[in-house]
Amino acid sequence: MNLTLKVWRQQNADSKGEMVTYKVSDITPDMSFLEMIDVLNEGILSGDIEDKQNYGPVAFDHDCREGICGMCSMYINGEPHGPGRAVTTCQLHMREFSDGETIYIEPWRAKAFPIIKDLVTDRSAFDRIIQAGGYVSVNTSGNTQDANALPIPKENADAAFDAATCIGCGACVAACKNSSAMLFTSAKVAQLSLLPQGEPEREKRVMDMVKQMDEEGFGNCTNTGACSVECPKEISLENIARMNREFLRANLTSSK
């Protein structure tokens, strides 16, 4: 396959970026999208692919390349992680594209995710949301009660697991027209609110995490559902409703 790539290039956080066009050839359908970018970068390095403005290889985040670390993050042809469903960019394969196609590649765009270089953004806002309360306050004494002392209904455990499969890639924010982080935040709130271990800090957790989310500069949820459609782990929109409920409940009942 031969492809035309239009890639966002930006030297660093302070510089102004632009879309730059590259031509890649000899792409095979079995390649993953990131392997296609590897080919582009090798070509730029060797001079086989023309890089007029001398930007050098395209910087992009990636690590596990099996769809679980949440590092890869490209906005491809107008969608986060590209046209595939329930996939991350690294799991997207070139057989989804056709010969001669033009592919647009951009970074996640949100005020809360400033660009570091090219396609690399700073997503530490997500870490700070978790730090605000996305945990159970238990020390690692090794003397907690026996794991089976507290049975948890399978249904709740499964629902908590489904929410907990979030990989924190930020596709939800990238997809949302408002750059809202509700799906990410609500997935953690939902997970811990479904488990008895999360109960003691239930109110404080949701209030603190929402507060942090707001401070980071994410937008508001308008229930478009784009986040859930584009989520590589198919985190349900139900979690957002659950967080809305938890937050309302917390504000009405908490003594704080």
Binding site: G142, Q145, A147, N148, P151, K154, A157, Q197
Partner: peptide, 25 residues
């Protein structure tokens, strides 16, 4: 020896391990 503590610890942290219909691990 410490392997058993790990499971206790993780469950206390809210790790959603697979459970059977009785609610046990």
């Amino acid at each position: 020896e410490v392997s058993t503590n790990i499971i206790d610890q993780c469950v206390a942290q809210g790790v959603p391990f697979a459970r059977d219909y009785g609610g046990l691990l």
